[in-house]
Amino acid sequence: MKGMKWLCLLIVLICSCFFTHINASADLIKRKEVEPTGQVVWEVPTSKKVIALTFDDGPDPKYTPQVLELLKQYGGHATFFEIGYRMEQYPEIVKQVVQAGHELGNHSMTHQYANKTGVKYMSLDIIKADQIIQKYQPDRLKLFRPPGGYIDTALLQETKQLGYKVVLWSYHQETKDYTLPGAQVIADHIIRNARNGDIVLLHDGGGDRSQTILALKSILPALKQKGFQFVTVSELLHIQ
């Protein structure tokens, strides 16, 4: 009987965790429902050989300049979804990004996940980061990438009111470079799966990004040889 009691308790706990997860996830946006509205972008269907490389969690004084140098070497532009407090820490790096012709995107002020903070906190976080971005790159298309890719219907509506377009990434191009799978693994994945209009997620900040840098040294020449041009997300959105 005692064993049966513990078994029943375990079943109750598992069910509780399962339904809690379902309830917590219930309001997360579904791509098939949101994509037709144009409020969230994963990639852009096009016949042109263009691809948008994006870099999250910077700026970083060690890795961001290396990314900039590689992009310059291969004549490419990219979008950097930067964190507000890091922009405050490294203003010179932000200037380098903008002066090199790249684009700044909003990755929030403190990099908190929306499913943990709520829409009010995230709204203020977006506004604070926006105030910093406007100092360097005013009057541009406003692009927001939610930390962790977490966005629900309430936050989606809030970002729309703030004048932002939400930019995620092509699911077939999620390399998870932040897990340090190896430079060759990152490079092979992106090169093998490259399609016209892709938005590729990479990271130039938030930890050891040496593998990402090494991967770029293979990715950029390989994709250029395939005929791809490297564009910003804004440029990608305006391609006919």
Rank of each mutant, 00 (worst) to 15 (best):
T54C: 08
F80I: 09
Y74P: 09
M122G: 03
Y90P: 06
A114K: 01
K48W: 06
F55N: 00
I132D: 00
V67R: 03
V119G: 00
K116P: 03
G76C: 05
V67G: 08
G118I: 08
P61G: 01
A100K: 00
A78I: 02
D60A: 02
V119L: 03
Y113C: 12
D56N: 09
P61L: 02
D57Y: 06
Y63F: 15
I127H: 08
N106K: 05
S108K: 04
M87K: 03
M109A: 09
G84Q: 07
S123K: 15
K95F: 10
L70V: 01
K120F: 03
S47K: 14
I93M: 10
L53W: 02
P91D: 06
Q89Y: 07
Q112I: 10
P59R: 00
T64F: 14
I83F: 07
D130A: 11
G76W: 01
K72V: 07
V98P: 01
H77D: 13
A100L: 06
R140Q: 15
K62G: 04
E82S: 15
Q89D: 12
K72I: 09
Y113T: 15
A100F: 03
I132V: 09
L124Y: 07
V98S: 08
R140L: 14
Q96C: 12
L141K: 15
I126M: 12
D57L: 02
Q96L: 14
N115Q: 11
L124C: 10
S123I: 03
T54S: 07
K48Y: 12
G76V: 05
Y136D: 04
M122S: 05
K95T: 12
E103Q: 13
I83M: 11
M87D: 03
P138H: 12
P91E: 08
A129M: 06
Q89W: 10
Q137V: 11
I93P: 08
L68N: 10
G58Q: 10
D125H: 09
R86E: 07
I93C: 11
H77Y: 15
P138A: 07
K48E: 14
Q131T: 02
V97D: 02
Q89N: 12
I133T: 00
T110E: 14
M109Y: 15
Q99G: 12
M87W: 04
Q99H: 15
K72P: 12
Y85W: 06
V97W: 05
I126N: 09
G58F: 11
D57C: 04
G118W: 09
Q99T: 13
G105W: 03
K48S: 09
V94I: 08
I133R: 00
L71R: 06
N115C: 10
V94A: 05
T64V: 15
M122E: 08
G101H: 06
K49I: 13
Q96F: 10
R140M: 15
M87N: 09
G105V: 04
G118A: 12
Q96M: 14
I93V: 15
F81I: 14
K120V: 06
F55M: 00
M109W: 11
T117A: 04
A78P: 01
R140T: 14
I132Q: 05
A114H: 06
M122P: 02
Y63R: 00
Y63E: 01
G118H: 07
E69H: 13
Q96A: 15
K49H: 11
Q96T: 10
L68W: 11
V97M: 07
F80L: 12
Q96V: 14
D125N: 11
G105S: 11
D60I: 02
K120L: 08
